[in-house]
């Protein structure tokens, strides 16, 4: 039923089309960026949470 209502709006097809395209661009962009990232930087970022020293005193 919802589908019929939505379909009756003229030009509705453009919305998902736009959304899909923007998303596609973003997704591809993110992938390209990620592949170009250098190793030392990745290491630096992924170790951020481990760099605060909050080991329990009992251990």
């Amino acid at each position: 039923m919802l589908r019929d209502v939505l379909n009756s709006i003229s030009g509705i097809g453009i919305f998902p089309t736009i959304a899909l395209l923007i998303f596609f661009a973003l997704f591809v962009g993110a992938i390209i960026y990620v592949f170009r990232m250098d190793k030392p930087y990745e290491k630096l970022m992924s170790e951020l949470p481990l760099k605060d020293n909050s080991a329990p005193k009992g251990e």
């Binding site: 919802l2 589908r3 939505l6 379909n7 509705i12 097809g13 919305f15 998902p16 089309t17």
Partner: peptide, 9 residues
């Protein structure tokens, strides 16, 4: 809603 739109190219 991704299933609700059907009149797509």
């Amino acid at each position: 809603h991704h299933l609700l739109y059907t009149s797509l190219p």
